[in-house]
């Protein structure tokens, strides 16, 4: 289980996160929603060790998380090498893991529908880039997936492929923390959703089907 305990982060005088706490159970798909600037990406980066928190802890299976071992991370736009193919990129980055072979890379590429694509990463569409990034995230068979806006700006086919793969991962016991703006997509995927506003969790929805997220987001955005 992934536990986020009282995470705080400030940039100069601006408090980006004001004590965030929640947990994601095994096999759960947990959503984070909020308008731009609500602190979602910062929280993801802290969980993925890309940014250091001012205070608070990230626990995984009751132990303080120190590395990304067992985690699959997909944060913001992918930045692979544009002159390499998908396979070459994954092969290069697989060197940073232990025991990932070419079969594992091919398997991950097959899952996202990029196995026989010969184009280089620079020639990919945005949807293909996101799918490659997802393939990278699942490359080492992670126990937790951190997906920050995976559907941002991508085509329907890629959305469907990623949605299917996320559900499939969760059904195999992988904990998924995902953020996004597409309300219907998030409702379709998530078991629970946290609403972030100005660095605080302001709402926790467990009855996803009957929650009007659009109205909630509007209310929090427009309030005084």
């Amino acid at each position: 289980m992934l536990e986020i305990i009282d995470i705080k982060k400030s940039y100069r005088d601006h408090e980006v996160l004001q004590g965030i706490s929640f947990s994601v159970k095994e096999g759960e798909i947990c959503g984070l929603m909020g308008v731009n600037g609500s602190g979602k990406s910062t929280l993801f980066k802290i969980i993925a060790n890309l940014v250091l928190a001012d205070s608070g802890q990230v626990l995984y299976n009751n132990q303080v998380k120190k590395t990304n071992d067992g985690f699959g991370v997909m944060i913001e736009n992918p930045a692979f090498y544009p002159y390499m193919t998908g396979f070459q990129n994954l092969y290069a980055f697989s060197k940073l893991y232990n025991n990932i072979g070419k079969e594992d890379i091919n398997s991950a590429l097959k899952k996202v529908g990029l196995l026989n694509v010969k184009q280089t990463f620079g020639q990919y569409s945005l949807g293909m880039k996101q799918r490659l990034y997802f393939a990278f995230a699942i490359l080492a068979n992670p126990k937790v997936l951190l997906l920050d806006e995976p559907f941002s700006g991508i085509d329907y086919l890629s959305v469907d492929i990623l949605s299917y793969l996320i559900k499939d991962a969760a059904s195999r016991g992988v904990s998924v923390l995902i953020s996004g703006h597409q309300v219907e997509q998030m409702k379709d995927l998530c078991h629970s959703v946290y609403l972030l506003d100005q660095g605080k969790i302001v709402f926790h929805a467990q009855d996803i089907a009957n929650t009007d997220f659009k109205q909630l987001l509007l209310d929090y955005t427009m309030r005084e």
């Binding site: 071992d69 930045a79 940073l96 893991y97 990278f136 080492a140």
Partner: peptide
């Protein structure tokens, strides 16, 4: 520069 730092650090490699 290329933003790959995020990808590298999202592997088990520590800073």
């Amino acid at each position: 520069d290329a933003g790959m730092f995020k990808i590298i650090l999202s592997t088990p490699i520590t800073r």
